[in-house]
Design a protein around this nucleic acid. Structure first.
Length: 648
RNA sequence: GGGUCCGUGGCGCAGACUGGAUAGCGCGUCGGCCUUCUAAGUCGAUGGUCGAGGGUUCGAAUCCCUCCGGACCCGCCA
């Protein structure tokens, strides 16, 4: 239990409670004993509410609490200093500050970087995240995915899982074919800028041109039929696309004209795109060269961005290879076709998701109140759809892992549900149960809606650049004594850190409205706030030099201010926090914890002198505490992928 | 239209899964603290019918129902 100090204290409280209740003859189930941290520190460090138990046993809560307190007096205690009854039915447990300080600080000192981590069961977990389509740069919504996925991976690893991070490259989609089609039209126009930004421009231009062409034809058709009201509707849509197109043209006239001109003079561009996709699925050389070429360019851009924010992958999974060319997607369709959940209508293969859900009694289990829409597995031209390929990919992943977590935006809730149902239909229901769709809400921009097709988005790169620039101005004002090189280095890790923190600190199921002030906050409750404390702790240790460790034993009993006590309890709670964040898949808990711990460290810093402490044992104990704080801060920051600077 | 998620001081959030003691934090505004380890810090003041209304309970921000508001989904897109 040494690796989990507060957990050890909790266990001791539980043991005292169990014994006392047993002696009282009060029956209780294990899950019923819930210890909570009381709102007021004067009520102790953990508290038990007797109300539920007492009522069931037919006794007064206050009386039961008093009896427990009486029994607790005889109990063997190490980390528990005293047990009190209060508030008419509460049993409050107070920590033995000296014992707890010694246990906690020794644990942290001996475990170092491993403090907070646990052995776990070594379960193989695949976390698939980011997986941005190779048709535009990673925008701020994709950035949320990347940051969440990366933090989840780190936390699960710390909790003792064997984690592999996978990026799924959706190179078989209609959109990639569309972007590639436009890519084939740029001819000799000079390419400039970051590769994924270029691809984003080409995709948006292609999509605008195709939409404008299609809408114009549709409007003519409606007008000739006298459907003026419908036509007016389409004209409004057209205006929106024309607006987007004119913004794009302003960015790169030559390239825009090359793509748009070619599309406008083509009879049926949609058919051309569909043909390209079909040839790609069939692995025709020219289609592969074009689509792979474009995808590689986009990926090179992604990798550059991700490297900057310290996000790495263990595997880059090409959808074309794993699902299409391997024949696995077709096998999925065949296997499903042999069941009675699948029907063929006008050449398309369709899974009856509703029937599947009913047959396996999944409607209640998955909380489905309405009819589940059918899932098209195969188009009439023989090509597969995304979810079909995702089924094949899921089977592939389960050959390599016990558990799979897909970080995918909430927009894909339905297809992810259909994916699970399809697994049941295949007789692989057990996989469905070990598959988690970790969904997160979208990032909105105030004023307008992001749209890759229209080229309207704020890129991850832009956000990082702006953050680093602002951080540089801030560093220059606050620390003019540092060298230019140092200021640059600090602003990079502060800028990147604040973006990561802003994206991880909000619970995933809440939408985020992106504003610069919000993401680039350098005050309290932000990455710089935390990093600054790490730098302060580092600085104390730097000034103390190494000698203090050898001088004698630390006097843990001297750590008796409330500032020290609060900080130590927080440090001792880190392993429990990591465990809970991993179990409930809530990375924002780490951000919350870290912020809270830093607040407590700052109070300690402002109220308790360390280097100036006269008495040797007390000085050593305080230095130990500072060192432990630095360690836990660095460990916590690592979990959320933020660098811990020694100076700021 | 149907479904899912969200709604907590002027703004941004935590707490909800597992009900428990006067609902926490940051920003903002106003006023303090640098001859003491980095003031990106800290102290105080200000500010809340926890969207509204019912219900369950000894006890509800938390669970249930209805309604209101917002987002998302309901494609031979992903």
């Amino acid at each position: 239990m040494d690796g989990n100090p507060f957990g050890a204290f909790r266990e001791e409280c539980l043991s005292i409670l169990r014994d006392a209740l047993g002696e009282e003859g009060v029956a209780i189930t294990e899950g019923e004993i819930k210890l909570t941290v009381p709102p007021d520190p004067s009520h102790g460090n953990l508290s038990f509410s007797t109300h539920t138990t007492a009522r069931r046993a037919g006794v007064e809560p206050r009386a039961l609490a008093d009896r427990i307190v009486e029994r607790a007096k005889d109990a063997q205690k190490r980390l528990v200093a005293k047990v009190e009854g209060a508030g008419g039915g509460y049993v409050n447990f107070f920590i033995n500050e000296t014992e707890f300080a010694e246990l906690t600080l020794n644990s942290i000192t001996s475990m170092g970087k491993d403090y907070g981590s646990s052995k776990g069961n070594g379960e193989k977990v695949i976390v698939e995240h980011t997986s941005v389509n190779p048709i535009h740069p990673i925008h701020i919504g994709g950035a949320r995915n990347a940051v969440i996925g990366d933090c989840l991976s780190r936390i699960l690893k710390a909790a003792g899982n064997d984690v592999r991070r996978h990026f799924y490259i959706d190179d078989v989609g209609l959109q990639v074919a569309q972007a590639s089609y436009g890519f084939g039209k740029i001819g000799g126009v000079a390419r400039e800028g970051k590769s994924d930004h270029l691809i984003g421009f080409i995709y948006a231009t292609t999509s605008c041109a195709m939409n404008i062409k299609a809408l114009r034809a549709e409007i003519e058709r409606l007008k000739s039929k006298g459907k003026d009201e419908d036509a007016r509707q389409k004209i409004m849509e057209l205006d929106d696309w024309v607006g987007a197109a004119s913004d794009l043209r302003a960015k790169n006239e030559k390239m825009f004209d090359a793509i748009s001109g070619s599309i406008m003079s083509t009879e049926d561009p949609e058919a051309e795109v569909a043909g390209l996709l079909r040839r790609y699925e069939e692995r025709h050389k020219e289609a592969v060269r074009l689509i792979r070429g474009l995808s590689e360019l986009a990926l090179a851009g992604f990798k550059e961005t991700l490297r900057r924010v310290d996000i790495e992958f263990d595997s880059w999974d090409w959808e074309s290879e794993l699902a299409s060319w391997s024949g696995e997607a077709d096998k999925v369709v065949e296997r499903l076709s042999r069941t009675d959940f699948v029907k063929v209508e006008e050449g398309t293969v369709i899974l009856d998701a509703e029937l599947t859900a009913k047959r396996f009694n999944l409607k209640e289990r998955y909380g489905i109140k309405t009819e589940v829409p059918p899932l098209t597995l195969k188009r009439s031209d023989g090509t597969t759809l995304y979810t079909t390929r995702d089924i094949a990919y899921t089977l592939w992943k389960f050959e390599r892992a016990d558990r799979v977590i897909n970080v995918i935006s909430i927009e894909q809730r339905l297809p992810q549900l259909q994916l699970k149902l399809a697994l049941y239909a295949l007789g692989e229901g057990e996989m469905a149960e070990r598959l988690t769709h970790f969904s997160y809400e979208l990032v909105h921009l105030p004023g307008y809606k992001m749209s890759g097709r229209r080229g309207r988005y704020v890129t991850f790169d832009d956000v990082i650049d702006e953050a680093v620039e602002r951080a540089y101005r801030e560093v220059s004002v606050r620390s003019p004594h540092l060298s230019e090189e140092e200021r640059k280095g600090i602003s990079e890790l502060v800028g990147v850190g604040s973006v990561r923190y802003a994206l991880i600190a909000v619970a995933s199921n809440k939408p985020i409205t992106f504003t610069w002030e919000r993401v680039l906050n350098f005050e309290q409750n932000s990455a710089p706030f935390i990093q600054y404390s790490h730098a302060r702790a580092s600085n104390i240790l730097l000034k103390a030099e190494g000698g203090w460790r050898e001088g004698g034993t630390p006097d843990y009993g001297s750590l008796n201010t409330k500032y020290e006590h609060d900080l130590i309890v927080r440090l001792g709670s880190f392993p429990e926090t990591v465990e809970e964040a991993a179990r409930t898949l809530r990375p924002e808990m780490i951000a919350e914890y870290t912020n809270d711990m830093v607040s407590k460290f700052n109070l300690f810093y402002d109220n308790v002198p360390v280097l100036k402490t006269k008495e040797g044992g007390a000085r050593r104990a305080r230095l130990r505490l500072v060192e432990a704080t630095k360690t836990v801060l660095a460990n916590a920051l690592w979990l959320i992928g933020i660098e811990a600077p020694a100076r700021m």
